[in-house]
């Protein structure tokens, strides 16, 4: 019926229960930072109190978006840039579901940028994990809204003439309730930030600066995957609670990492209930009071 190439001879992986093992091997290049982030994410889910049947993953298009195809949860691989509005509909229709959106920098902030700022503004209760590898990996390494000024990509062979977004600052200024950034080598921090973002009621955003050795690394002579990992880690400076405007990502100077925002703010549903049906009792299993009791 299908041509799944399940690798049966390997010993079981601790994450097998959360993986569609019949779909392995995956499409990611050797040394890609996505695998690290995926592993951290799976661990966070496994260690959480959530029933996996009540956790759903939504993604858009791109290398990172393919996570949705490997995770053994209800998972939705939607259109380019549209993971957030799809996830918004899913969350509001089924408020007792824990929603995790995984997305790359191009998917989330170029084609999906408008959706990002509005999802954060509405404080939709979901966890958004962004793997930022500074370019469009799947299509061979084109310029992205994260590409550093002067960096080379297939569409900026003389150096990118655009200044990139600071995603964490954007998320914070739009009202995200939780914002953190790490580099791909800081695995434990990634995992704990994802866990915290999942626990947070509201819009949580975790950015991971990750190597794309095949495209971005190669064109910018950054060495192999391990060297890239170490390079980003070496540039990183942990400065939690810094003003996100100062939490810069400048690969020539420093990459500010840490947990920048962790606040309580009413979600879309909190306000919706308050304004539309203040007289009504909690009307669904997904009501805030119910979730607190988990």
């Amino acid at each position: 019926m299908t041509t799944a190439k399940a690798v049966r001879h390997l010993p079981p992986h601790p994450m097998d229960s959360l993986l569609r093992t019949e779909r392995i091997p995956h499409i990611w290049c050797p040394g890609c930072g996505i695998g690290t982030v995926f592993n951290a994410l799976l661990t966070a889910i496994k260690d959480s109190c959530y029933d996996p049947d009540a956790v759903a993953m939504v993604s858009g298009i791109g290398c990172t978006g393919r996570m949705a195809g490997y995770i053994r949860l209800d998972s939705f691989h939607t259109t380019h840039g549209r993971a957030l509005p799809f996830a918004t509909g899913l969350k509001l229709a089924k408020p007792d579901t824990k929603i995790i959106v995984v997305s790359g920098d191009g998917d989330l902030f170029a084609i999906g940028g408008n959706h990002f700022i509005h999802a954060a503004r509405r404080n939709i209760d979901m966890t958004v994990v962004c793997v930022n590898n500074f370019n469009y990996g799947m299509t061979g390494g084109q310029q992205a809204p994260s590409t550093p000024l002067g960096a080379k990509t297939t569409t900026t062979i003389n150096g990118s003439p655009e200044e990139p977004f600071n995603f964490c600052d954007l998320a914070a200024s739009c009202g995200a309730a939780y914002v953190a950034r790490w580099t791909a080598q800081q695995v434990r921090s990634i995992r704990s930030s994802i866990s915290e973002a999942m626990e947070k009621r509201g819009f949580g955003f975790v950015e991971v600066i990750a190597p794309c050795p095949s495209a971005f690394g190669r064109r910018n002579r950054m060495g192999n995957a391990l060297e890239m990992l170490k390079f980003y880690r070496g540039r990183s400076v942990i400065r939690s609670d810094i003003d996100t405007r100062d939490a810069i990502v400048d690969i020539d100077r420093e990459i500010v990492v840490g947990k920048f925002v962790d606040i309580e703010r009413p979600t879309f549903m909190d306000h919706y209930e308050k304004f539309n049906r203040p007289q009504m009792p909690p009307w669904r299993v997904g009501h805030p009071d119910h979730q607190k009791g988990r």
Partner: peptide
């Protein structure tokens, strides 16, 4: 809202269409 449902004004029609697909998968 009075029928226990959700009305949301999205940022554009692309998002509106995406949201109703998500909601439909939510049952």
């Amino acid at each position: 809202p009075q029928l226990g449902g959700i009305y949301i004004q999205m940022e554009d029609e692309i998002a509106s269409m995406a949201a109703i697909l998500g909601a439909s998968w939510g049952g």
